[in-house]
């Protein structure tokens, strides 16, 4: 039972990370109907920028652990958001009226480009987060010994998801985003600046993805320039699982996938761990392509 709860909480932590990345996929897909293949790489940038800032600015030494990490998270989110906006401007906006294939290929190209830029800057080897900065504290909760980082990651991702959800549901800008996702043309007629909505989505999604990248660095301690594509694929699976374009769906899908994967790896086979997400992806697309929370829409002929 101990083992089960360890795996469950581990799955929730990883799932929270998937969910944060999945939100970026789902928001962009909602508004542009485009799979932003480069989103996973923005996540990687979050991890690398986090590492660089952490070691070069020594924030945790100056500000203490809590405040230092908070400032670090905000800086990473801001920087990756700017990158996301540049990506939209350079690789997607010129293709807004092009066939879908063009945008998909451009997204892939951007992904390859971003990934290899990182490789040229940092090298192809694994990079290691300094372990002396973070407390390796273990918490004793409900009879379980849990690493502090794991608990923090679950809490942080849930907090960010809740904040995003409230923002989308309760604010005017959030309403504009939802409207643009339902019908861009109609939203435009209602006086919504769709370009601004798209820009916003490309700021918010990457910001969350960047935060997720930082979390992976803090949680696992080592990062690699190609990790964005594995995490990206899994997060995309999470988005599909919940229902692409559906924000609560991405959250549910992420957590669910994290748990499925952790339990599958523990009880079925560790060697097949990475295949589990892909199997889930294929199964969900065959059985229920609209995802758990998605609605069926008829194709217009």
């Amino acid at each position: 039972m101990e083992e089960f709860f360890q795996q469950l909480t581990n799955g929730l932590a990883v799932g929270g990370i998937y969910a944060l990345i999945a939100l970026g996929y789902t928001m962009v897909y909602g508004v542009l109907k485009l799979i932003n293949f480069a989103h996973g790489d923005l996540f990687t940038y979050g991890a690398y920028l986090g590492l660089t800032l952490l070691t070069s600015l020594a924030l945790t030494d100056r500000l203490g652990f809590a405040l230092g990490v908070l400032v670090l998270v905000l800086m990473v989110m801001g920087l990756v958001a700017v990158l996301g906006a540049i990506l939209e401007r350079a690789a997607y906006r010129p293709l807004r009226e092009s066939p879908r294939l063009s945008a998909v290929v451009s997204a892939l190209g951007a992904s390859i480009f971003l990934q290899n830029t990182l490789m040229l800057i940092y090298g192809a080897r694994f990079q290691v987060y300094p372990d002396n900065i973070l407390p390796a504290t273990t918490l004793h909760l409900f009879g379980l010994y849990l690493p502090l980082m794991r608990v923090l990651i679950v809490l942080a991702s849930v907090a960010m998801m809740a904040a995003l959800y409230l923002f989308i549901q309760k604010t005017r800008i959030g309403t504009a985003i939802r409207a643009a996702a339902i019908d861009q043309g109609a939203a435009r007629l209602m006086g919504i600046d769709v370009n601004r909505v798209i820009l916003l989505v490309f700021l918010m999604g990457p910001a969350l993805g960047g935060a997720a990248g930082l979390m992976v660095g803090l949680y696992y301690g080592q990062i690699n320039f190609t990790m964005g594509w594995v995490y990206g694929m899994k997060a995309f699976t999470a988005a599909i699982l919940g229902g692409i374009g559906n924000i609560p769906g991405a959250m549910v899908g992420g957590l669910l996938l994290g748990v499925i994967e952790a339990l599958g790896a523990a009880y079925l086979s560790i060697a097949w761990k990475d295949a589990i997400a892909f199997l889930v992806l294929i199964l969900i697309l065959i059985v229920r392509p609209t995802g758990l929370l998605g609605e069926r829409v008829a194709d217009k002929i």
Partner: peptide, 9 residues
Amino acid sequence: GLVMVVMMV
């Protein structure tokens, strides 16, 4: 990667 983006545009 760069060529893919530029070509599509």
